[in-house]
């Protein structure tokens, strides 16, 4: 989707942290991006380099954690792995699933100077 504008949100969130946490250089940014977050990680990497140019984040290494997606299957009453939103339950075939993870879109940690 709008990976560029997400990169801008990441930049401003880190810049706010730089002020409150007193750092002037970011060496590494670790994100958590779930497979159901609607974000294409390749596009995010591309946008990251462009958007961070001229900021304290320029040149920082970007790491992206991609946690697996899971859902709660109501008929089975247990958590099952899924890869897409429309996947049926791998055990019973039901679509009565509630996504429990995979929608993460977070800045996890920063390595700063």
């Amino acid at each position: 989707m709008h990976e560029m504008s997400l990169c801008q949100s990441i930049r401003s969130a880190i810049e706010e942290q730089a002020e409150s946490q007193k750092f002037s250089r970011v060496d590494r940014v670790k994100l958590e991006v779930g497979p159901l977050s609607g974000v294409e990680t390749d596009a995010l990497r591309f946008g990251f380099d462009v958007v961070m140019r001229g900021s304290i984040i320029e040149g920082a290494k970007l790491e992206i954690d991609e946690p697996p997606a899971a859902a709660w299957c109501m008929p089975c009453a247990e958590t099952v792995p899924i890869t897409q939103r429309y996947d049926p339950c791998p055990k019973c075939g039901s679509h009565q699933l509630q996504v429990t993870s995979g929608e993460e879109l977070r800045i996890k940690e920063l390595e700063v100077n």
């Binding site: 949100s9 401003s12 750092f23 977070r106 800045i107 996890k108 700063v112």
Partner: peptide, 13 residues
């Protein structure tokens, strides 16, 4: 160098 754990939602704003 130091590590800051943020766990901040990118869409928080």
């Amino acid at each position: 160098a130091r590590l800051i754990e943020l766990e901040q939602d990118i869409l928080a704003k």
